[in-house]
Design a protein around this nucleic acid. Structure first.
Lengths: 253, 253
DNA sequence: CGCGCCCTTGACTGAGTTCAACGGACGTGG
DNA sequence: CCACGTCCGTTGAACTCAGTCAAGGGCGCG
């Protein structure tokens, strides 16, 4: 029996889901929700995961006010989340990449508090929250890691508060680049060479700056020889300097 | 047998803890972690809660880098939390009051990421996190509410990001006052008349403004007849207007 | 080719900071 | 009880960083 035949003979429920869609086969499982689970537990998690959904670039994963039923684990691609205040202006609250969890802010009110939008064609795993809660009682490891992920989100947001509340423009931008760099590094990508998936405007909004300021900062950093930019392609030539600027140890002047 | 005698005759373990220290007898139990629990479950939660600790004004509940063992529920008083960045400047990340939970940002790394400091003489319940996790398996209601509280913290921080990223000074300050007002209201206190427990400097730091700006804003709002101020005593004379300013529907000009 | 979107750059503006001086509340000690 | 120092807050004047406004460039796509 060939491998192809073996695949064909699997029951329909298995065939309808690609093998690569299982947590254990996903390249993100060391970072994502199933981190640290044994094979057996990972399978149980797999069983509750609803669908793997494709989200086209610029389309919404969810919107403010949508009822909360699922968390979403990003398998592939990038997202942004933004809030809208009563007078209509937006604040980008984060950029998320593969292995990160979306929707945790909706647990408290069972409604989403922000919009989540794909920055490129992306793929997510739908995790029905009530079923996930059902697993927690029997899988303390899963629960513990879930708490770590929520806690990490709190920590992340606190550091953005520090950024928005205390830092000057160039410090903010250096911190932003440094943050992206380390997150790509964790995922096994280059920490010095990557693409910006978001527009200058989205970066500016996230950092509490205008698009013009971001543009000027890119030019300034380029002139200093700290980075190389061409459209959305970015190379960090002086990552150590950038880290120092982000930390406030060094300035641009 | 008199009541006094009855108290004396109670076993030492009971005597060492005041009756009012039990969750079911605490005025915050409708807001705090035990929200919605039945008497029996509340007792179980009580049993794992370590101590009720008094924290003197200006002293630390925990510091950045302290190992994480407990969450803290505020029974009485007010706290602030702040982060410190590498170059030494601080960012106040929140002001907490009775019924709120402190320390959730430490779960991810098992180290505290910020300092928590009492703004006045306060009291907290020490909740050993590992024992709390032990209860989760058997008390899904408790777990669910814990998730709601973490999620609420994420939401709260997102709205601060919106504030710091998008709002003008007067809008920030109006949002701050409105937020305090509604939190006091939930706790059964006056929503229009309360004391500021923090200095102008702490408010400014939290809102990404200087102490001078806060002082000027107080004067401005007073001149407009929106508030009455005398040192730390505050009265909101036009709460509706303040809400509108916070929402960006109305300006001060 | 032409249109739209995204980005860059320059000149000017202004909200909020910085600097500085002062005032008032509170606690301590003579 | 007053003198003194400290901490906290207020107010004014000058400055500055980032925003606003405006014009133009470059790239992709129909």
């Amino acid at each position: 029996m060939t491998q192809a035949q073996a695949l064909v003979r699997q029951p329909a429920t298995s065939r309808s889901r690609e093998i690569s869609a299982r947590c254990s086969a996903c390249s993100m499982h060391q970072i994502c929700l199933p981190m640290g689970l044994e094979e057996k537990d990972m399978d149980r998690l797999d069983q509750i995961i609803g669908r793997r959904r494709k989200i086209a670039r610029d389309s919404h994963l969810y919107r403010v006010g949508d009822p909360f039923t699922n968390l979403y684990a990003i398998r592939l691609g990038h997202f942004k989340t933004h809030q809208v205040n009563p007078s209509g202006d937006q604040q980008v609250t984060g950029f998320q990449m593969a292995g990160e969890l979306l929707g945790m802010d909706a647990i408290s009110t069972e409604r989403h508090h922000c919009d989540a939008i794909a920055l490129e064609d992306s793929e997510v795993c739908e995790i029905p929250f009530s079923r996930l809660e059902g697993l927690f009682g029997e899988m303390p490891q899963l629960l513990h890691h879930f708490h770590r992920m929520m806690s990490q989100e709190i920590t992340r947001e606190q550091s953005v508060m520090l950024l928005l509340g205390n830092m000057r423009a160039e410090q903010r931008f250096a911190a932003f680049l440094t943050n992206l760099s380390s997150r790509y590094s964790i995922r096994g990508y280059s920490s010095t060479s990557f693409q910006l998936r978001m527009t200058r405007e989205e970066i500016g909004n996230y950092l509490g700056l205008t698009i013009e300021s971001i543009s000027r900062l890119l030019s300034k950093f380029k002139k200093r020889g700290w980075i190389k930019v061409s459209n959305r392609d970015l190379e960090l030539l002086e990552p150590v300097t950038l880290k120092a600027v982000a930390a406030g140890t060094q300035t641009c002047a």
